[in-house]
Design a protein around this nucleic acid. Structure first.
Lengths: 225, 225
DNA sequence: GGATCGATCGCACGGCCGTGCTAAAATAGA
DNA sequence: TCTATTTTAGCACGGCCGTGCGATCGATCC
């Protein structure tokens, strides 16, 4: 049935693309997003620009793939941290810590993310990635709020943004309060991240962890039911 | 005494520089920070690149001046909003709103600010501006917390970061709590700003204002004394 | 072996960049 | 008017950019 007989080369495209994307992140960590040209990434990966362009016909395609890979990796880290922790507090702390620039590699990711937020023309149209990443982070914050409020139905899912809306009636106001609390937590995490990038000397890794822990402790103390 | 007799031209350098900086911001609002080249800014200002380079010998110098001007303008807006409001709540709301991207011009400023946060090599060494802007914003947050806690000694000053530390003794823990509250407010405002840039369709100007108002109302309700 | 086709390479083109530099225009005093 | 000095214009250089394109290599199947 498969009548296209000639299949002369054996290169795992997915793996090769991932390898090139890794080279891109190495360049970004060293020279920033604006330093990630086709040439520099190709040199970092060890191949020629022509070879790289054989797997990514366009620089936008390469950048988009690298961003998507990064977001997937972050989501995987969050999932692992969520399921791998015993107590609720440790679970929430560990999951949210995956979003903070606690080491240089993650700081590079955050810087790259901020860099593409400043794009106006939206080259390659990364708008959907922005929406998706925002929704996933908001969902995680919602799950954290539910978890620390003692709700056992908490779960982490990228598409569970408006979960919990099934419960109607008197619990509606509580749901609304939780949504507000999730939004506030979302702002806190994003602001903490931004400040860690802005003044890294004032906000090192232990300070970030401590700030997050203090916030979660206040949350579990239940200032607003 | 002034023996250098020939003074043949009468161009107000400061005014001209400000004019060019304004052109830069127009370009940034249209094409982003990466689109603000010497040529595009010169064309936008209506002069040749040679004329622009007569007032800014280097692009880094131009960008730094434009950023400094923007920061000064923001600080002036904050001061005006602070002194021009009657009630404490209105004062705090109006002042903090100056930091939010409530219109397209301010969104451009925020995007430009985020863009220079992603610079790794720190071209032109904008690190001091980062520190200064961060400290000023933190000071404003501290003033807001003091204002909404009923302390009449609140004041807005760029260098009053650690003001209030003069009061020792039993008030020390209260001061520490206020500092934590200021840091939290700082994170909230920064996070709100970041999200307004990330998903502007979900966070429009009224939503930003409402979110800030809700936060300040909770603050004045005094959840933590 | 020969054919076929993916994989790899690297040159070349046009474009935008920052900036150095020279020449012309404009202006204020001698 | 002449002169000195600032201001303005714009060309030119070298560099990096993304990308198109043809050539070469290498492996697989007839």
């Amino acid at each position: 049935m498969c009548q296209d007989v000639p299949v002369p080369k054996v290169v795992d495209h997915a793996r090769r693309r991932a390898e090139i994307a890794a080279a891109l992140w190495r360049v970004v960590a060293r020279a920033g997003m604006e330093g990630a040209s086709v040439r520099t990434v190709s040199a970092e990966s060890g191949w020629s620009t022509g070879a790289v362009r054989h797997y990514f016909s366009t620089q936008d395609e390469l950048v988009r793939f690298a961003i998507e890979s990064m977001l997937s990796a972050v989501e995987a880290r969050v999932q692992e941290a969520w399921t791998g922790s015993r107590t609720s507090l440790a679970r929430c702390q560990a999951a949210l810590e995956q979003l903070l620039p606690l080491d240089e590699a993650r700081a590079a990711e955050v810087r790259a993310w901020l860099a593409l937020l400043t794009r106006t023309g939206d080259a390659g149209d990364l708008g959907d990635l922005r929406q998706q990443a925002w929704a996933a982070e908001r969902a995680l914050c919602g799950a954290v709020v539910r978890e620390l409020s003692g709700d056992s139905a908490a779960a982490v899912s990228g598409s569970a943004v408006a979960s919990g809306a099934a419960v109607r009636g008197k619990a509606n106001t509580r749901e609304r309060a939780r949504a507000r609390e999730a939004a506030r937590l979302h702002c806190f995490v994003d602001g903490l991240t931004l400040q860690a990038i802005t003044v890294p000397d004032r906000q090192d890794a232990p300070a970030l962890r401590a700030a997050l822990r203090a916030y979660l402790l206040d949350l579990v103390a239940g200032k607003d039911g």
